[in-house]
Simulated assay, not measured.
Amino acid sequence: MYDPTVARLTYRALLGRRRALILGALPLLLIVISVAVRALTGADDQTAADVLGGFALATMVPIIGVIAGTGAIGPEIDDGSVVYLLSKPIKRPTIILTKLIVAIGVTMVFSAVPTMIAGLILNGNGQQIAVAYTVAALVASIAYSALFLLLGTVSRHAVVFGLVYALVWEALFGSLVPGARTLSVQQWSLAVAHKVAGGDLVTSDVGLTTATVLLVAVTVLATWYAGQKLRSLTLAGEE
């Protein structure tokens, strides 16, 4: 269920010079902010949680997920080059699963790694804050990649819709409407982080069991439906 050729082409598309600069901008900004905050306030657990939760998990991770998830397949569908890929004797679920693995890997590297570095800069992992948010970033990377890969297969405006979900639904409605928080990848990943850190510095509005079920369900369903959409696209081209 993994094709090295598809993976190589997807990595090349995601890590081209222009896209790599975009992917690296937010992690670099996080590191700069962390250095500045540490210099101004010293090591503080609450400050570390605020920076990692407010910027890394709430902004950086979903945006990188949008770029990697939609970029793994969206441009190929838009410019028609996906027809070349679909003409090869490769099963459609294999194509989707390979692209998902690549998107997850890219998202994890550009989000979880800088989150860990930032956490160590801010407070040296006091009260497991750095590790907890790194785990949250890893978990969120999987769900975001699946969701945004699906968006890339169903819409030419996947990036716009992805940013609306990440920055409007999760950040705005999630903070204003309690019920919306249940349908938030951010809150699901925070539930996992809370389990890692314990205490009150990392909190979530969703229980761990519910969060785990929803994370798995969304990832599996989004991947399956993306495969179905790719199959229908193939049939439409053959007709």
Rank of each mutant, 00 (worst) to 15 (best):
A222E: 05
Q228T: 09
G237M: 12
L214R: 11
A143T: 15
T210F: 05
Q127W: 02
V131D: 04
L214T: 00
I129K: 02
A140R: 02
V177I: 15
T134W: 03
P178F: 11
T182V: 11
A143H: 10
Y144F: 11
V202G: 09
V213P: 00
A136M: 07
Y144D: 04
I142P: 10
G174P: 01
A146Y: 01
V196K: 08
W224E: 00
L172M: 11
Y165N: 08
L163V: 02
L201S: 03
V160E: 02
Y225S: 04
L221F: 15
E170Q: 10
L150G: 08
A180F: 15
G227M: 06
R231A: 14
L235D: 07
A193Y: 10
V220Y: 02
T182A: 11
L235V: 08
I129F: 09
V168Y: 10
E170Y: 03
L183I: 12
G126A: 13
L201K: 01
L235Q: 13
L208P: 03
F148K: 04
S155Y: 09
S145M: 08
T223E: 07
D200Q: 08
A136Q: 05
T234G: 15
Q187C: 00
V192N: 08
A136L: 09
Y144I: 10
A136I: 13
L172R: 08
G227S: 15
V216Q: 05
V135N: 03
G174A: 00
K229L: 10
Q228E: 14
V192E: 04
S145T: 05
L150D: 07
L214G: 01
Q187G: 05
H194Y: 05
V177R: 06
L172D: 01
A146C: 06
S141W: 11
G152P: 08
L176S: 12
K195Y: 11
N123P: 07
W188P: 02
V139A: 15
V213N: 06
Q186L: 10
V168T: 06
A226H: 06
T153W: 06
V135Q: 06
V196D: 09
L230Q: 12
N123W: 07
Q186H: 14
Y144H: 09
Y225N: 04
W188M: 06
V220L: 13
F161Y: 11
V192S: 12
L163F: 06
L221H: 03
V168G: 02
A236K: 13
T153M: 12
L138C: 14
A193L: 09
L201Q: 07
V154F: 03
A193S: 08
S184V: 06
V185F: 14
T219V: 04
F173W: 11
T153Y: 02
P178Q: 12
V213Q: 14
G174N: 03
V218M: 10
A236T: 14
F148L: 12
G227R: 13
Q186D: 03
L215Y: 03
A130E: 10
W169T: 03
A132R: 01
L190R: 13
L138S: 07
S204E: 01
A180V: 11
K229Y: 07
V131I: 15
V216C: 08
K229M: 15
A226W: 11
V159D: 14
T182G: 15
G126Y: 02
T210W: 13
T234F: 05
T210P: 00
T209S: 13
A137V: 05
F161M: 09
L149D: 05
L208V: 14
F161P: 02
L151W: 00
A191I: 11
L150C: 11
T219H: 11
S175C: 01
A226F: 08
V135L: 13
L230S: 04
